[in-house]
Design a protein around this nucleic acid. Sequence first.
RNA 1: GGCCCGGUAGCUCAGCGGACAGAGCGGCUCCCUUCUAAGGAGAGGGUCGGGGGUUCAAAUCCCUCCCGGGCUGCCA
Length: 818
Amino acid sequence: MAERYSPHIIEAKWQARWEQDGLYHTQDDPARPKWYALTMFPYTSGDLHCGHWYAMAPSDVQARYKRMKGYNVLFPIGFDAFGLPAENAAIQRSIHPFRWTMDNVANMRQQLRSMGAMFDWSREIITCLPDYYRWNQWFFLQFYKRGLAYRAMAPANWCPGCQTVLANEQVMSDGTCERCHSTVTKRDLEQWFLRITQYADELLDHRELQWPERIKVMQTNWIGKSFGVEVSFPLERQDLSDKEIRVFTTRPDTIYGVTFMVLAPEHPLVPQLTTPERRAEVDAYVEATRRESEIERQSTEREKTGVFTGAYCINQFNGQRVAIFIADYALLHYGTGAVMGVPAHDTRDFAFAKKYQLPIITVIAPPDWQGGELTEAYTEPGAMVHSGPFDGIWSTEGIEKVNDYIEQQGWGSRKVSYRLRDWLISRQRYWGTPIPMVYCPQCGIVPVPEEQLPVLLPEDAAFRPTGESPLKYHQAFAHTTCPQCGQAAQRESDTMDTFVDSSWYQMRYLSPSYEQGPFDQEVAARWHPVDQYTGGAEHATMHLLYARFFHKVIRDLGLVRSNEPYARLYNQGQILGPDGQRMSKSRGNVVAPDENVSRFGADTFRAYLMFLGPWDQGGPFNTEGINGVARWIARVWNLVSDHWTEGDREPPDDAGLRELLRWTHRTIRKVDEDLAEFRFNTMLAALMEFTNYLSRPETQGMKGTAAWREALESLLLLMAPTTPHVAEELWARTGHAFSIHQQAFPAWDQTRIAEDQITLVVQVNGRVRDKLMVPASIAEAEARELALASERVRAQVKDGRVTQVIYVPGRLVNVVVR
RNA sequence: GGCCCGGUAGCUCAGCGGACAGAGCGGCUCCCUUCUAAGGAGAGGGUCGGGGGUUCAAAUCCCUCCCGGGCUGCCA
């Protein structure tokens, strides 16, 4: 009896050995194809939780698999270290964000090491260190030079209680301030934007990407490209500076159904065109809208509200007077900030018209429409009616006809609109990358010269619970001289959104200590793009879109050639508590990875996480289930250490030996295919079945044969990516040279998998009537003949007529009798 | 409201046109008793969410409804 499986001893031993031998340091190797595997780097929150393990361990398994398949694999890791929680910790516990963050990094590094992943630690990056964030600043300057970074007025979250601006994260879901619980409103501030909209069309193009369909769909919807027309509605009063309202619509075919006009409350025309008798009510509504939280305004639950301005415009198609309203469902930043109200064919306009008793004119006939009043908006296509010269035209065609007419008349032109807005990167906080800009009373906005980078984040900032950046009050930081004229000037005190950090980090790993630029172009040319990226789907429209945008700018700067940063993407699901609910401290259902590692070992914990279900689906952590995996590994331990036995016995039983080889090669094929496709759960089931097969009493007779050793060797090699420590230990114990992780993945041989004999199922009218043992190579004609010759078939057929005989090679014959 | 994913044994999942539907775990029965929050042997267990259709043949394809989960959210 071999000694007992003791995960803690062997895991510590091999982790130390791998590190000592630099087993996972990736060097360039032109002889092997490169494979850049990347798992989203963790935020330095303090502790590695199950979600991190669930994301990273399977990612590691696939990276290891690729390595065994002959690739030169790069699998780096780092820390996303800037962000609000560090600043909150500073305020709440009087610990400096830097200390708090770096303590967390030290802790998480240890936890990550306990995972036994093949991370190349020599490439670690930490985004809050100056030699990382200086390149954020450098990129910002390049964006600025190309007109891709600009400053504009934008509404920021304003807390009237704290008298300051809040970051989005500081606004709670009910629209109140997280500290003083006042209702947060909007206040206009000058802030920095990155012009992501300039790349909107290119970002819609996902053709190069092997990404999950749903992520691509989410990005497409987020960008929200729509084709329409911008058309003018002249104002009735022509004594104002503006003579018309322009609206954007995708449904010009409904233009004869316009019965009102809606402007966004913030629309610049509103103050001028409001009539004196309506002014008080309009002003009150505009003010109320400003006070509304984003949450309130976006709620679909509540009724549509609006106010009549007293003004009218003219629908040039039919000369009709159209009343102009303001309503908060019209958004200033989309289209022209003005909507033509067509209640008959738009659900929002319908609700609005009902509430304010505005006319509803049907101009697209629903199927079987008798000319009656509609009870709800009809938004589908149909024949145009009450539409003057366009009557009778099918609406989809009518869109083009009306657009042509608008352009002929000079009333407007076809236009494309996007839902995507430019990326607001200013954050009124301390713990982030300083934006490298200076405000000079003489020269205006002046970029910090590249050679003066990094603009260091001062360490000795005073933290006050104001929600405003402490940098504003840091004299030595804020007061500077103008790089252009040398006079006293003010530094930008806002810092960058932390999504900037993660927008290009995959490039920094390639040359983490490069000083002449954000990355070494020559090295990058060999390694980018990331071949396989893995992480959560929650980043679909933020990180993943920003990173694609950044990459395209990096390309246009001439630093890389590829169009996309991440060639393949896979989203893991979410691990839930044992109760099936999201893990949270308040629910008390948090499963701590460290506890499981100390109880079962990292190998068992890794394997269990992968066994619990399809990786992209996630699922509840089952405290019982992990025992099963622990027992499986122990069974493998006993099997291999007890039954290895050298020697070269003659095979005792030829058929049994072929069966053993069949099992071995079938399992190799299954594991190979499953690992390539992230099907870890079924891979493990196959390994368990194989282990069970090898443990059967009748299989024991194969011990000592070459086939037996091949089976056990294969089992270890197949387990190596998933359970790297125990595989390494057993590899060594069976007399193999270090390291199993430098072995090639076993190859399977189709001829070994093929069965000699198959069971041919014989059906009559789809019901099984007989089973015949036949050679696997049986010819179709012979199979048909045998089936028809079967006694049991003949008994069924009797005097019926055989109308059809269906043959499925290697499986069955179905005799159809009438 | 829209889009996406899922509903198969008590639980977690395979199977996704071809046999009387399979694994792991748990439960059950028996055995063992210095690997003991253990080991071995074995037998059970399923209207494949409901209803229609297509087919020689449907868990598998189509339609429809029901139930869970995720994302999204007035974008004119």
